[in-house]
Write a protein that binds this DNA or RNA. Structure first.
Length: 256
DNA sequence: ATGCCCGGAACGTCCGGA
């Protein structure tokens, strides 16, 4: 089972890139972030023609997450539990082929400190609580998406310059480590512990892509039952170099 | 380094992104 995550920075602006990549990479499941559209504007029919069913949790203009799957999806749940007043569409999960798979878009949190950083940290507390509860199902769990966290200094092109950014601050990293301490495995580092410049994001500005100044912020976290089946994890840089690219590129795992 | 870019909403520019 091949599972990918990709922050597409508007699914409608990115549709040709997404369709092409699906045909080339042949993932079974892709979780998307920043679809930037309401449910009724999600390109369900184009993706169905490409072989994928869609589960969507959209929002006007900002945020929005979705799951694309070649296999049937059941028990679809929208919204991260823990705050009924949270209107931001950043979480959707479904059961697919015996695996519970989530698409998450963790808040950016800048500027820090501030209200947005407080929201990020509070969202992470809810994520930790929900991730803990999912472990009790004894089903393989894959929590995939844009975490907006560089877990360590190797995951940012300029760790000193970014040390006070919400993506790198110790409060953000500490909560990410708490997720791992629950028993989750971060797939890329598990298989590539010493890899450098394994970026998944390059800013549109300042020539970040041609200069290879990036961040590693898109992650797949695996419960023990899923981690036991992890056989590959790769970052596919090719889509970032295309015309009209997203600022993120896909990262995928294979489960045996 | 956040001025540079990009998408959405909207139609002039601002917000959000990371």
């Amino acid at each position: 089972m091949k599972i990918a995550t990709w922050n597409v920075n508007s699914v409608n602006a990115r549709l040709p890139n997404v369709i092409q990549w699906l045909g080339q990479a042949q993932p079974d499941v892709v979780v998307l972030q920043e679809i930037k559209c309401q449910d009724e504007n999600f390109p369900v029919l184009d993706l169905k023609a490409a072989g994928y069913e869609s589960a969507v949790h959209g929002q006007k203009s900002y945020n929005g997450v979705a799951i694309l799957s070649r296999l049937p999806m059941t028990d679809i749940r929208r919204g991260l539990p823990g705050d009924d007043d949270d209107a931001q569409a950043r979480w959707i999960e479904a059961e697919i082929g015996g695996v519970r798979i989530a698409s998450l878009y963790l808040p950016n949190g800048n500027p820090a400190p501030g209200d947005k950083f407080d929201y990020k940290l509070a969202w992470m507390e809810r994520l930790i609580a929900h991730a803990r509860s999912l472990l009790t199902t004894e089903m393989p769990v894959v929590l995939a998406g844009d975490y907006n966290i560089c877990p360590n200094d190797d995951d940012v092109f300029d760790p000193i310059g970014w040390q006070n950014d919400a993506l790198c601050r110790p409060e953000s990293r500490a909560r990410f480590r708490r997720l791992l301490n629950l028993g989750y495995t971060e797939a890329y580092r598990a298989l590539h512990p010493a890899a450098k410049k394994a970026w998944t994001f390059w800013d549109y500005q300042a020539g970040a892509w041609p200069r290879d100044l990036g961040l590693r912020i898109d992650h797949l976290l695996l419960s023990p039952e899923a981690a036991d089946r992890l056989s590959a994890c790769r970052i596919d840089r090719e889509p970032r170099g295309q015309e009209k690219a997203s600022d993120h590129t896909p990262i995928w795992i294979s489960l045996s």
